[in-house]
């Protein structure tokens, strides 16, 4: 789609931030940077200006492999019928207490 050469296209990065200790890193957005060091600095400057984070990951966008939404049925629907994987599937009398 792009006609520009690599010389002028700065790579895209995905930014993940851990907002508090104990929480997982969460995707917060993207940015452009020439390399990982600059990407990390930019992530700090762009996405943590209001104390949003304690830890940052940056990942080159093109390193992400995504599932195909067209295969959503095959990928995710089979799990929906496995209700026996959930605790509420099983009956335990109230007298037994919390389990």
């Amino acid at each position: 789609m792009s006609t520009q050469t690599n010389k002028t296209v700065t790579p895209l990065w995905e930014v993940f931030i851990r907002s508090r200790n104990g929480l997982a890193h969460k995707h917060v957005g993207s940015l452009h940077a020439a390399d990982a060091t600059l990407a990390l600095q930019a992530a700090r400057d762009v996405y943590t200006r209001r104390g949003e984070g304690l830890s940052i990951w940056v990942v080159p966008s093109n390193a992400i492999t995504a599932s195909d939404p067209g295969e959503k049925g095959m990928m995710f629907e089979p799990a929906e019928s496995k209700i026996y994987r959930h605790p509420t599937f099983y009956e335990v009398p109230d007298e037994v207490g919390h389990m």
Partner: peptide, 9 residues
């Protein structure tokens, strides 16, 4: 500047 960063990378 953008070119320099890319060249360095």
């Amino acid at each position: 500047v953008r070119e320099a960063a890319l060249a360095y990378a």
